[in-house]
Amino acid sequence: MKFGSLLVTSAIAVPAIALAVISQTGWPAAAPPPSGFASPRTVTITPGTLAYRMPGEFLKSERPVDAPKEDVRFRRPFEIMAYQVSISDYGQCVADGACEAAEGASDNKGALPATGVSFRDATAYASWLSGRTGETWRLPTDEEWAFAAAERFTDDTLGIEETNNPAARWLARYRSEAEAAKGRDPEPKPHGHFGANSKGVYDLAGNVWEWTSTCYRRASVNHQGDVESSTDNCGVRVTGGQHRGYMSFFIRDGKSGGCAAGMAPDNLGIRLVKERPSLFAALKAFWRSAAG
C-alpha cells in the first residue's frame, strides 16, 4: 500500500495534474460563523501569469534534469493569509479538540507562527477554521504559493548540463541549499519579521516552510521537455520556502524528516487560502441575512 492511498480521506484532493489553469470552485459556506471570531487577515492576489517551474523530480532518458517551466494563468483573484497561522490561532483549534498540539513552541510571545505542524495538522486546521468562520479555507497549491510568493519564490533550477555523472546534481543541490542556509537563524520569528513581498504577503521564505496541497511527482519528459508520463505520490507534499521542500505528510519537524545527506527546512508552518464565495454561496448568505 502506498502512502498516497492512506491520504485520500484527509487530503483536500487538489490534483497536481491541474497545473495549467487554476479555477475557482467556490464551495458553499458551512455553518454560520460564531460571533466574536475574527476571520484571519488576507491579501488579494490579483490575476496574472506565472512562468512556473514544476515541482518534483523529472527524468529525461532516465537521467535527472531540471523540471520544465510552464506558463500558468490565474484568471481570478484569490485570497491568501497575510501572515502565517500564529501559535494562538492554532491553539484555538487545539482547544476546540479539532487539532493536535503542535510540536513547536507553545508560548506565544509576540505573534509567533505555529511551527512543528504536519500536513495533517494543516488540513485539520483548515477545516476547523472553515467551520468557525463559515468560510472555505484550504492549503494553497504549490502554483498558488509560488504566484503569491512572487520575487520570494526561488526557481530551483540547477542549470547543470546533462551529464553521465549523477553526483553533479547532488553536489549542486547540496551547495545551493547550504548557501541558502548559511547564517540563517532557525528560531521562529514574530509576524512581520521577514517583511512583506511585493504583493503584501508577509514572512514568505523566512525560516518557516509552508505546506501546500501539491503532491510530489516523478515525471519523464521527452526531448522537447514535455511531460510524457508521471506518477504522483500524495504521501509526500510540496512545502514552500527558501527552497522547495518535499515532506511526508506526517512529518512535523523537517530536520527529522530530511534525508541523510541534504539540507532540511528549519520549521514547518501553515498559511491558508480563502475561497472567494461563489454566486451560490453569496445568494445563500444574502438569503440568510434577509431571513434573519
Binding site: L171, Y174, A260, A261, G262
Partner: peptide
C-alpha cells in the same frame, strides 16, 4: 565516487535525531 557522503555514528537515532552527522562533498 563523487557525491555527498554522510559520515555518521551508525546508531542512526543518534545520527539523525541527536546530531551525530557530518557530510563530505566529494567532487
Amino acid at each position: 565516487q563523487p557525491g555527498v557522503y554522510a559520515y555518521v555514528n551508525h546508531n542512526l537515532i543518534e545520527a539523525a535525531e541527536l546530531g551525530a552527522t557530518a557530510h563530505v562533498m566529494v567532487e
